[in-house]
């Protein structure tokens, strides 16, 4: 779990890291990938005990991604389950050309997008308990008037700021949301995101720019100079 987690956040933390430290991280990354390859080979050979190990190793990352994408704990749990069911059922098709992690994220992203699209097609319901949903014009949704008096607490990210950030993420289109989650929250590099989303590095770059422009509009009042 540790190796996998550090692998994920490496993109950001590499900045400023020395060559030795980077080498260590790359070694940990490679060791984690090697372990995945072994587990997958075992699974393909019919060893069912390998699957729970993969689930234990990656369930939190998958759940966190789903939670950021759909902002609903129960739905995220169900989606996490769906992701691992797809992994189990499709593991025979997995090729080692790219990392298992990339493949797993591709499945996770697709599950979330499928869910969000289905949800969009369903008639809208008014939720009294949930903060954001997908659409800005959701019926029954309160208008968002930023509290301009709000001052972010520097010592801890307080609940209000969390809410504001989650709301802002929720207002992004699916395409922009997924890219901002992969980059800003999960720390993937552009190349990794391109691999997960099966698009070019240039597309990653321009979508991230657009996502940030939108976030600047939405979060502007909370992040003044």
């Amino acid at each position: 779990m540790q190796a996998a987690h550090s692998e994920r956040t490496q993109g950001k933390r590499d900045v400023g890291a020395g060559a030795g430290e980077r080498e260590k991280k790359n070694d940990a990354k490679e060791a984690s990938r090697q372990k995945d390859r072994e587990l997958i080979t075992s699974m393909k050979d019919g060893d069912q005990s390998a699957f729970p190990q993969l689930v234990s190793k990656y369930q939190r990352q998958v759940y966190n991604h789903c939670q950021r994408m759909v902002n609903d704990e129960e739905e995220s749990y169900d989606l996490t389950q769906e992701v691992f069911l797809r992994v189990f059922r499709n593991i025979k098709n997995y090729q080692h050309n790219y990392s298992f992690y990339t493949w797993l994220y591709r499945i996770t992203v697709n599950c979330c997008i499928d869910y969000l699209r289905k949800k969009k097609r369903k008639p809208a319901t008014v939720s009294l308990s949930q903060g954001y949903r997908n659409d800005r014009n959701e019926p029954g949704r309160d208008q968002d008037y930023p509290d301009t008096k709000f001052v972010p607490d520097k010592t801890a990210l307080n609940r209000e700021l969390n809410q504001v950030l989650n709301d802002a993420i929720g207002k992004l289109s699916e395409k922009l949301r997924v890219i901002i989650v992969l980059k800003e929250i999960e720390g993937f590099s552009y190349d990794e995101i391109a691999e997960i989303l099966v698009c070019s590095r240039g597309t990653v770059k321009s979508r991230l720019f657009r996502a940030r422009e939108r976030l600047k509009e939405l979060l502007g009042p909370y992040f003044t100079d």
Binding site: L161, N162, L165, N166, E186, G187, F223
Partner: peptide, 10 residues
């Protein structure tokens, strides 16, 4: 600033 706040969400 926005990135660092987003990063703390993880």
């Amino acid at each position: 600033k926005i990135s660092s706040a987003m990063n703390s969400l993880n």
